[in-house]
Design a binder for these strands. Structure first.
Lengths: 254, 254
DNA sequence: ACAATAGTGTCTATCAGACAGTATATA
DNA sequence: TATATACTGTCTGATAGACACTATTGT
């Protein structure tokens, strides 16, 4: 008794909530660089949820770890390679997938890829970076994800899902991913997983504040980060203002 | 193509790292209460790893969520009911279980049960609360788990496993569980999940400091916790000193 | 010169830790 | 009285935020 074969087995999938920063030109002031937080979603071609957007991911294969499965699916479906992966949790509601019993192990994936490398893979044609907005309203924060067209895909307020145009339970998973991202940035300096090797202090601030929901003056932000940074000899290419010294992350704590 | 049936499926298990506090009488000063951190392990009766200690847990069944499976197995195997559950992560190395392909979703479980309720369940006879010790050495912390007899079951130093008498990869899982416990206590007040409804400030301090690896004076600890506590009208039964007012957790943030 | 961001220094409120000192229980 | 813990208050040093001020780039 109690042998492995006696138990029914679910399918196991690995899905990833991929965040990245996109350096966009703002129109308002002609040429200001603005770093925007993006999430990577894929338009589904088949039922169920055909036409809807979903997280990249797929089924675990024999001989793989879940991390390997997430990496593989991410590369195949979106061209994103070697992101930082953090396990988010398993989503196991028995009816979460209309096709059958599927337990999904979700990952938080962070990429330094500023360029949208969507064009690479085979299925990648249907992958898109979506705009993530996080605004603080009175007594509550609102997270929303919109298409480039402006179509609202996900809208949450204080952890409650208000609008949800996503497939499966992926809205829940994204919400858990963002919460985890916030915690890891606040307490474990995960912001650096989104940055390139060299960066200016001001490049850190906008993403940091979008993700954490905080706001500080540039002067004070510099002081807060100083202990985690190392100066380099390099400088930013100039804009219409003083050039910025580039920094590297100080090695030490993970 | 790409149908669910095309993929091989692993068995899926839910295992729990259960922590609890045990109020023990210290011998040194005749009658001092000391709260010790304990972890719940089960002696395996069958191969593989017969005779070794392992985490309580078992296979996910049809129609269940992983949380339900963890709760059920915990009740069946150890008699621990309704602990606070937090997902730790999935362990998926293909060779982690000699019996076959088993993905284990691990939980951190916290119980307020001061009394050792081991005697309840059917398999519970083989469940035991083990002593968890965490000491700070020069440039590194050491976590170890010992039997009541003093037998060393797990010994780690700076995240490296030095001694491991446990079944499967459960040493790794316990290590991840303790790290997560530390983080959650530090940043999300999870210490209260281990406390009864009413408690004295000094009852909080010892567990808090064991888990977080910090040390503060009783006076300063009181000030740090004050904002999270509400006074009650109750007092501790007296020892050989002034009676302590009992507090309740202030409701608000989870 | 002007606009815009980079970067420094200074003041202040807040908070954590050190520690002195009082209160109250039992032996 | 002695002792051990409960609890209060005061000082100090580190840190976060407000903000004044200087530096350097392109237009």
């Amino acid at each position: 008794m109690n042998r492995i074969e006696d138990y029914a087995r679910p399918s196991v999938a690995a899905d990833a909530v991929v965040f990245g920063l996109d350096t966009a030109q703002a129109e308002s002031r002609g040429g200001l660089k603005q770093r925007k937080l993006k999430a990577l979603l894929i338009r589904r071609g088949e039922e169920p949820f055909a036409g809807r957007y979903a997280l990249p991911g797929g089924f675990l294969r024999t001989g793989e770890t879940l991390e390997q499965a997430a990496q593989r699916e991410l590369a195949e479906e979106t061209g994103v390679i070697q992101p930082k992966l953090i396990q988010l949790g398993a989503f196991s509601r028995p009816d979460r997938d209309p096709r059958g019993w599927v337990v999904s192990c979700a990952f938080l994936a962070l990429t330094k890829t500023v360029a949208l490398s969507t064009a690479a893979g085979s299925d990648a044609a249907e992958a898109r970076w979506m705009q993530v907005s996080c605004t603080e309203t009175d007594q509550g924060e609102a997270l929303s994800i919109t298409d480039d067209d402006g179509t609202l895909l996900l809208d949450t307020e204080n952890g409650q899902i208000k609008t949800n145009a996503l497939a499966f339970d992926h809205a829940e998973i994204i919400l858990a991913g963002f919460r985890r991202l916030r915690d890891e940035v606040l307490y474990h300096d995960l912001i650096f997983a989104l940055m390139p090797e060299l960066f200016a202090v001001s490049d850190l601030q906008q993403p940091y504040e979008i993700i954490t929901g905080t706001h500080t003056s540039p002067q004070n932000f510099r002081k807060k980060m100083a202990s985690k940074l190392v100066e380099t000899e390099y400088y930013n290419e100039a804009a219409a203002h003083r050039t910025a010294k580039l920094y590297r992350r100080k090695d030490g704590i993970t």
